[in-house]
């Protein structure tokens, strides 16, 4: 069962397929690589046509993606648990320091009540495990003021 994907507040069809060791890939979808796979085979993947993305666990070093950032259309950051906040720092580093401007998607334990924090750290897409959520706009922006 796939997650519900939102780009900003808009629900969208997911165009991406995560490449596992034994997966067969089709030409219709964009390919998302695990970080370790990407680091090892980046030259090969970069030479192939089509959009590319990388899935990070929250302990992966975002700085090592620096040379590839302009060629990546998607970076996913995994939240293994809702209360594990490492992904927020990764997002800010990617956006504020490394200047990544492609889609930045939160995946894993992504709960509606944390979306406003994610958005403020630079995420612009969210894979929600909860299929019942129809509309996320009120959760993206519950505060009209901020201190930081």
């Amino acid at each position: 069962m796939r997650n519900r994907i939102f780009q900003g507040a808009t629900a969208v069809e997911d165009q991406w397929q995560l490449v596992e060791e034994d997966s067969t890939t089709s030409a219709e979808v964009h390919l998302l690589y695990h970080y370790a796979d990407w680091i090892e085979n980046r030259a090969t993947y970069l030479a192939q046509p089509g959009a590319k993305g990388v899935l990070l666990s929250n302990t992966d070093d975002v700085a090592s993606l620096m040379p590839d950032l302009e060629r990546l259309a998607l970076i996913c950051i995994d939240f293994p648990e809702a209360v594990d906040g490492r992904g927020y720092s990764q997002a800010r580093l990617l956006r504020d320091r490394l200047g990544y401007s492609g889609e930045l998607r939160a995946v894993g334990e992504v709960l509606v009540d944390q979306l406003f924090l994610m958005r403020r750290c630079g995420f612009d897409a969210y894979a929600l495990p909860d299929k019942n959520v129809e509309c996320i706009s009120k959760y993206l922006d519950p505060f009209t003021v901020k201190y930081q």
Partner: peptide, 13 residues
Amino acid sequence: RQWSTLHPEFSFL
């Protein structure tokens, strides 16, 4: 206090 209130990066330390 103001800086730390609802800090988006540091709410799940």
